[in-house]
Write a protein that binds this DNA or RNA. Structure first.
Lengths: 149, 149
DNA sequence: TAAATTATTGAACAATATTCAGATATTAAG
DNA sequence: CTTAATATCTGAATATTGTTCAATAATTTA
């Protein structure tokens, strides 16, 4: 068979989905055209960023998940956004947050296995400005993207 | 006006979306019926858990985000799933991971503001079995759910 | 109060997901 | 290798759904 999974999964992970207006309308018993109006307003107001699929990552070759707690070196304190965006720009990176507390960045990553996770971490975190990285490896994801696994 | 946002946002945050088969088909130049077949297969195989909207949480009264790094007390080491599921079962909780490393759990939370975040943390984390909580407050989300903000 | 803007809604339309049946490819068995 | 069985692919037809439009109602502003 044609390997469409390799194309479909990255597409659906980032978008290519749409709200089910008729089903929402039926569920909350409002006219579908009212739901349509409201959803489009949420989009125009920039409140909705997009629509996407949520995967069971253990079943799509992304079962190895971890958090990198990052300390920045003093010279990047003034502008953590630049390095954050560089980190975010990797497909293995699920989320990046600039934080207060013991670490400046919290980065969530997903890879196929330990080997690929290790090589991703090395590649992504070997940047000038990163002083220290503390890795927490996830043994089991209980909830992700607001959806319980 | 009817406040449909209060109903729509929780619905779209967890589901009520669907893949855009025709658009995928056009993009990768395959028959839409083939895409349909493949997507349904992904669903049957349990690889796709659902379809949902991603929000700009700063614009929907969930702008305050943080991570709780949790240490469990020795008596819960043997069964961290139970307490993890209790934690996951709160609407403020975006993700829960059982980890190795310096903390047993990593919990991502979203609330309206500092006050509501504080009350959520107190409510969620005051459980027997939780030994210690280290909170990291997000000042800015750069990427979330694989989507850059 | 009156005017203007914003929200709601049903009917008509266009686009899309889904079903179905036949064709093709792949795998398993002899 | 050949045949049978199974799985995948695909176009045509259908049913469902998102979208547009125009008219009405509600809300806000002057």
């Amino acid at each position: 068979m044609k390997n469409l999974y390799e194309k479909l999964i990255p597409m659906l992970k980032k978008g290519f989905c749409t709200p089910q207006i008729a089903q929402i309308a039926r569920t909350i018993k409002e006219p579908s055209t009212t739901i349509h109006f409201n959803v489009k307003k949420l989009e125009k107001e920039g409140k909705i960023k997009g629509y996407k699929a949520v995967f069971d990552y253990t079943k799509i070759e992304e079962g190895f998940c971890g958090f990198a707690l990052v300390s920045l070196s003093p010279d990047t304190y003034g502008n953590p956004e630049i390095i954050s965006k560089l980190i975010a720009n990797n497909p293995e990176v699920e989320s990046v947050d600039i934080c207060t507390g013991d670490w400046e960045l919290v980065v969530k990553l997903r890879a196929k296995d330990q080997t690929e996770y290790f090589s991703a971490i090395k590649r992504i975190m070997s940047k000038k400005g990163i002083a220290k990285v503390n890795s927490l490896v996830s043994l089991k994801s209980i909830k992700s993207e607001f959806i319980e696994i």
